[in-house]
Amino acid sequence: MTGKTAFETRYGFRRNQVLLANWRENPFNRWSFQNVGELVPSARVAALPVNEAPAEDFGGLLDEKIAVASTPETVAAFLSRSHTDALTVMRGGRIVGDWFAPHMDFGARHIIFSISKSVTAIMAGILEGEGVFDPEAPVTAYIPEARDSAYGEATVRHVLDMSVSLDFEEAYLDPESAFARYRRATLWNPGGGTESLREFLLTLQRLAEPHGQTFRYRSPNSDLLGLLLERASGQRFADLMREKLWLPLGAAGEASVAVDMEGTARTAGGISVTPRDLARVGEMMRQGGTANGRRIVPEAWVRDTTVTGGSSEAWQRGAMLPLFPKGRYRNKWYQTGHENGAYCGIGIHGQWLYVDPRTEVVIAKMSSQPEPVDDPLDLEIVAFFEALSRMV
């Protein structure tokens, strides 16, 4: 009788059970979220190799009790209950600790889903600072063929702030929806390869409401942003990210971004990075756009993104109000509206990059939650971050 392979012992299933049809489902996502490139075509974003070791000692913090639900539990218990794969915490620019689930190793990449939007927007800020990208320009200034789509009368600002009046729903679990067609166009679901992501985006139509009035979380906007950046810069997105962000940031690990049949980057949700490097992105934002003594993105852009910009009125009309009742959304980043001035990037299945400027804490949390969206758990996670920021 043949025993279990090392893979099966670690993950609880066989590698050949992970398919394009189920890679985002539990339990297979515990492996696939770290190995997206084996399932979806992906472009490399190289880094300068750096030897790092995990900082596993949280100084007993994992055993501390934390009250984010009806019953207090330890930090370690909450990490397990929230399906955390990895957690990296920084304070004042220093690594406080790294935590990993048994099925993830230090240095492994993990998909960050919609935090990809936040990372992509940083490139928009960089190009704006260089004078080659105008957030107030019409979309058609960069993509003329968008004139007959929902984006024909939209500006880049509408795209950046998710205020395009777009007739589209984020129906993650409906196999017959336009969202399922969208995922086929990105090669994320079986049946793709007949319609490119670009072609799909240009078929989308608008609602009757004017652009700029309501915050509507619609992922195609952020894939369109990737196309806008490529048109403005004349570079492939992966090359742009490497040159403008990854190398200046001092990233220690190679990143990757999923691409479609034409090589178009899935900038709305296809970026994979290590937990340490994700935390470095947050620290760069906390430092006002600098890293390693080098300016990466203009300070004014960071302040606009994390403090002053965004429409409270548009947010109040949107569907995510229960998460941050006093929040705003600017340049693909969430302002919590909390007293500590925290801001964050968020991705489905439990991906978070949380920055608390008051305590100087940055938290990168990567997860494999079974459901794409879990609103009650999201509220607990925010409370967890706030408590953890005070504890470290």
Rank of each mutant, 00 (worst) to 15 (best):
Q205K: 15
L207K: 14
A208G: 12
G212V: 02
F215S: 02
R216F: 05
R218C: 08
R218G: 06
S219E: 00
N221G: 00
S222P: 02
L228A: 02
S233P: 00
G234L: 06
G234H: 01
G234F: 06
Q235I: 05
A238W: 09
L240N: 08
L240T: 06
L240S: 08
M241V: 12
M241E: 08
R242T: 14
E243F: 10
E243A: 15
K244P: 10
W246E: 09
P248Q: 11
L249W: 08
G250F: 12
A251G: 11
A252P: 07
G253K: 15
E254K: 08
A255T: 07
A258S: 14
A258R: 14
V259D: 08
D260T: 09
M261Q: 15
E262I: 15
T264A: 14
R266E: 14
G270L: 15
G270C: 15
I271S: 12
I271Y: 14
S272G: 11
P275G: 08
P275E: 07
L278M: 10
A279H: 07
V281K: 07
V281A: 07
E283Q: 12
M284P: 03
M284Y: 03
R286N: 01
G288F: 00
G289K: 03
A291M: 00
N292E: 06
R295S: 04
I296A: 00
V297D: 01
E299A: 09
A300D: 08
W301M: 04
V302Y: 02
V302D: 02
D304G: 06
D304N: 10
D304S: 13
T305W: 04
G310C: 03
G310P: 02
G310F: 00
S311Y: 00
S312C: 04
S312L: 08
S312N: 08
A314H: 01
A314V: 01
Q316R: 10
Q316D: 02
R317V: 01
A319K: 13
A319G: 06
L321T: 14
L321P: 06
P322S: 02
L323R: 05
L323Y: 07
L323I: 01
F324Q: 03
Y334W: 15
Y334I: 13
Q335H: 04
Q335P: 09
H338E: 15
H338V: 11
N340S: 10
N340D: 14
Y343E: 05
Y343N: 03
C344D: 14
